[in-house]
Amino acid sequence: MVELANLVPKQRIESTLWSILVFCYIPLGVLLMLIRIFLTLNYFCMQVVFNCLCTRQNKVRRIFEKIFLFILGVAVNERNEKSFDNSSVVVLNHLSRVDGYFIAALCNLTAAVNLRVTGTLISVLRCLHVDDAPNNSDINSIKELLQVKKPVLVFPEPCPTNGAGLLKFRDWPFNHEFQIQPMVVRMKRPFPISGSTLDSVWWSDLLWSFFCPLTIYDITILPTMRKNKDENSNEFKERIRKSMSSMLDAPCTNYDASDVVEYLKRVRFEERKPQEHLRDYPPSNNTMRMAEQVKDILPHVPIHVIISDVERTKSVDITVTNILEGVVTFVAEEQTMATDTDSKVKVATKVRTPVNLSFSRDPNRRHMTLQERKDEFIAVAKEKYITKHGL
């Protein structure tokens, strides 16, 4: 079973040796990136002109597009082209947040992406706006394109990976009686630079693509597939995933979108968690004083989390608010009730019922709820202090 950490990389370059070589390449890479950013504007202008003069299938246009894209640093190598069907929904494994635009242009497809642009730009990018949970209008738009022999590219995986395995596919591409054209892609670069990372965004993936000398998309086209009468949509989806997995020589995993989100939260928490042995200087007395005040109010919050946020906000109130609103993530500490060692006095404390923990949609009510919770925590802290010192 492939670990999620080995499937969704946290860094672009894992090897130290390759990091040194890429560092030496930086001057040339940055120059190449700046030139390609400028040429991208020219590419958009060329596409606008071509849209006015001819169709996407025009052979002269296709030659010019592939030459221009090669200058921008992307090329394609297609295998088993005879298996391709123009009236199919193309499903492809996901390697970066920009491969949909590049592959759509290189292979003359229309990419179904959740991109809210309209007019000329969406035509130039060869895109079709489709929500993560498509509505009937989105499905009808896909059917209209398929009827005129314009294949639609869909990424069934919820996020990009490094190709070491396949995540669970989303359901919607397999629920509408589409003919499916499975394809698998491998990304080849002179440097082992990942196409995407766990928390990257589209523009960072694009800039890294421009930075690399060349990115080759090696695409293998599999035979078209239809759902059998005796199988449901989930069985059809898994049959396609297994065929793609076999061609990629990569396992099918049980990770879905929620697993990736939880993994991202865990990674961000570990990155924010301060390492005491790496601190350049200890917290100041004022920081420690404010952190102890917050700790008295929120005893279940680890002290290192409080210190980290207090150093940033310089305010007890703002730190308490950040913690209560979930801005600061942490793993709660187990709380133990303090006991009087001499057993002379036993104080019974009243157990308070917490105020409503959910936030109202009304901003005024939400603010009142937050203030009530803060007051409640302060009152409980006072009671504990009185109990502890026998006042």
Rank of each mutant, 00 (worst) to 15 (best):
L153C: 13
V148Y: 00
L146G: 08
P151N: 08
L145G: 00
E144V: 05
V148E: 11
V154Y: 08
W172V: 13
P134R: 05
F155G: 07
A164D: 03
P160M: 09
L166I: 00
P151M: 01
D138L: 01
V148L: 01
K168L: 13
D171M: 12
L166Q: 05
P173E: 11
P158D: 04
G165I: 06
N162G: 10
P160C: 06
F155T: 03
P151F: 10
V152P: 09
N136Q: 15
N136V: 12
I142D: 09
W172S: 13
G165E: 11
P160A: 14
I139H: 04
V152W: 08
E144A: 13
N175F: 11
T161I: 08
P173H: 12
N135I: 07
L166C: 10
N162W: 05
E157A: 01
N135L: 09
Q147L: 11
D138A: 14
G165A: 13
L145I: 00
P134H: 09
L146N: 09
K150Y: 01
P134Q: 03
K168S: 12
L145T: 00
L145S: 07
F155L: 10
V148M: 07
S141P: 01
S141A: 15
V154C: 05
F174K: 10
V152Y: 09
P156L: 06
A133I: 14
N136F: 13
L145H: 10
Q147G: 00
R170S: 15
T161N: 12
S137G: 12
P156C: 10
A133D: 15
D171K: 15
S141T: 04
S141D: 13
G165M: 04
G165P: 08
G165Q: 06
C159M: 05
P158Q: 04
N135P: 06
F174H: 04
K168D: 06
P173D: 12
P151V: 02
K150Q: 15
I142C: 09
K149G: 00
P156T: 03
I139F: 00
P173L: 14
P156V: 02
P160F: 02
F155N: 07
K149M: 03
K149W: 00
K149S: 13
L153R: 05
G165D: 09
L153V: 11
